[in-house]
């Protein structure tokens, strides 16, 4: 059963450390405060060319939250290609995209295994759709390109284990980062794109402090809010004004269609903000 090509450690199961503060009284100590304006996204650091031997590469880091123990997302992306397709694959008149997203074992609260799990595959699929709309695929017949993203550190709060179910929200932020970093790496690799695609996340949250009314925030950090009702991740081409991928999750009242469009619009707004960082970074790459 165990993969003999890796070092697996002891046969018995190991348990991640359990903290005594996990009890109820600790939860109240955690200040769930968002110190940014609802429309502000976190600062981002984006740099191309971190892996010189790849055709293109980029590194993206989100500013970590003021609260200690909350990490900012750290992503590294490499692009290999255009390269020849494997001999077994059929003729393709355009470029064949393959995306691969993997969390590092030390990226999240729970140690990740080396095999891709379904959520990582899911991220890869979403990323592929987001990028496919941006790439001019028929410039490169008979070729393939590999886009590989390593999530070096996820967007998680180490201290709280209360949010066990919030991984889906973390995935939204991860996807948004993946799209932006892959876009930079593709531009670095010199693969024709119609526009620079960037990701953006918006969420409908409910906070304890201002009870009752849910509000929409950009670039949410799950641990900063009491409850997330719904969120969407948008991949958006600002010049074309096109959405290449939309991922929506949550539980919104079906009656309020306005709320839904507002959420998507906020996601686009977040993506525009992300795009500004992307364009600035690309400008530095050529200069």
């Amino acid at each position: 059963m165990a993969d003999r090509r890796r070092i697996n450690g002891p046969a018995g199961a190991t348990i991640p450390p359990v903290f005594d503060e996990d009890g109820k009284q600790y939860e109240h100590k955690v200040a769930k405060i968002r110190d940014r304006a609802p429309t502000a996204i976190r600062k981002m650091f984006l740099k191309t060319g971190v892996t010189p031997s790849a055709s293109g590469s980029a590194y993206l880091e989100y500013e970590s939250s003021a609260k200690s123990g909350v990490s900012g997302l750290k992503l590294s992306c490499t692009v290999h290609g255009p390269r020849s397709l494997p001999r077994s694959s059929p003729f393709s008149p355009h470029i064949v995209l393959s995306t691969h997203v993997k969390y590092a074992p030390f990226a999240t609260k729970q140690r990740r295994g080396y095999l891709r799990d379904p959520s990582e595959r899911d991220l890869g699929t979403h990323l592929e759709t987001a990028l496919r709309g941006a790439i001019i695929a028929d410039r490169w017949p008979k070729s393939g390109v590999d886009i590989i993203i390593s999530i070096i550190e996820g967007d998680q709060d180490r201290e709280t284990s209360k949010f066990q179910g919030d991984e889906t929200w973390d995935m939204m932020n991860a996807l948004s980062g993946c799209i932006t970093v892959a876009s930079a790496a593709l531009a670095d690799a010199g693969i024709d794109c119609v526009d620079t695609v960037a990701g953006g996340v918006a969420a409908l949250v409910q906070d304890t402090s201002d009870d009752s009314t849910p509000r929409i925030v950009l670039d949410p950090i799950p641990s900063e809010h009491e409850k997330i009702l719904g969120a969407c991740c948008v991949a958006y081409l600002p010049i074309r004004d096109e959405v290449t991928n939309l991922w929506f999750k949550g539980d919104l009242p079906a009656s309020d269609i306005d709320l839904y469009t507002k959420l998507v619009e906020s996601g686009i707004q977040a993506s525009r903000n992300g795009n500004r960082v992307l364009v600035e970074c690309l400008g530095e790459t050529v200069a």
């Binding site: 941006a134 119609v194 074309r240 364009v279 400008g283």
Partner: peptide
């Protein structure tokens, strides 16, 4: 001058598209 993917270069009646450009 620098160009970034998606940047407008001009109307199609003014230039012929060369490598690294596209018409929309």
């Amino acid at each position: 001058t620098l160009a970034i993917p998606g940047q407008l270069l001009g109307h199609a009646s003014k230039y012929q598209p060369g490598p690294g450009t596209h018409i929309h």
